[in-house]
């Protein structure tokens, strides 16, 4: 069964790049661009991995992580935060909120795919 990955990202070109890379690996991708809808989308799509941006319209990535971690259903879902805010402080806040992994934009395609594979393997 193919792994299901939710990409929460509002930049269409980045979504396109990530989806291209993941589909090439044979993973199923769902996209959500609105921060406010992200948590519901997680509930409905029940992904194996979430790729999450920080700067999102209407709700920040950190808030989404916190909400997800409070829910029974999404407590253990691996979350990879992929953000342009790469300062140490941002990384700390993300880890405190409960992300599984943290990567900054711009990213190396290989590294992103490798990290995603890693998180999917851990979950399994």
């Amino acid at each position: 069964m193919a792994a299901k990955i939710l990409i929460v990202e509002d930049e269409p070109h980045i979504v396109e790049a990530v989806r291209f890379l993941f589909q090439r690996e044979g993973w199923e991708c769902t996209v959500e661009a609105d921060g406010a809808l992200a948590v519901d989308t997680v509930s409905s799509s029940d992904p194996d991995l979430i790729i999450l941006d920080h700067m999102l319209p209407n709700k920040s990535g950190i808030d989404i992580v916190k909400e997800l971690r409070q829910r029974e259903s999404s407590r253990d879902v691996p979350i990879l935060m992929l953000t342009a805010k790469g300062q140490a402080r941002d990384r700390q806040m993300a880890q405190l909120a409960g992300v599984s992994s943290f990567m900054t934009k711009p990213f190396a395609n290989g590294e992103l795919v490798e990290e995603a594979r890693h998180l999917l393997a851990d979950k399994a």
Binding site: E11, H13, I14, A17, V18, L21, A84, K105, P106, F107, A108, N109
Partner: peptide, 8 residues
């Protein structure tokens, strides 16, 4: 953000 797309 644009650099991420460009690089990718």
């Amino acid at each position: 953000t644009p650099m991420a797309s460009i690089r990718s």
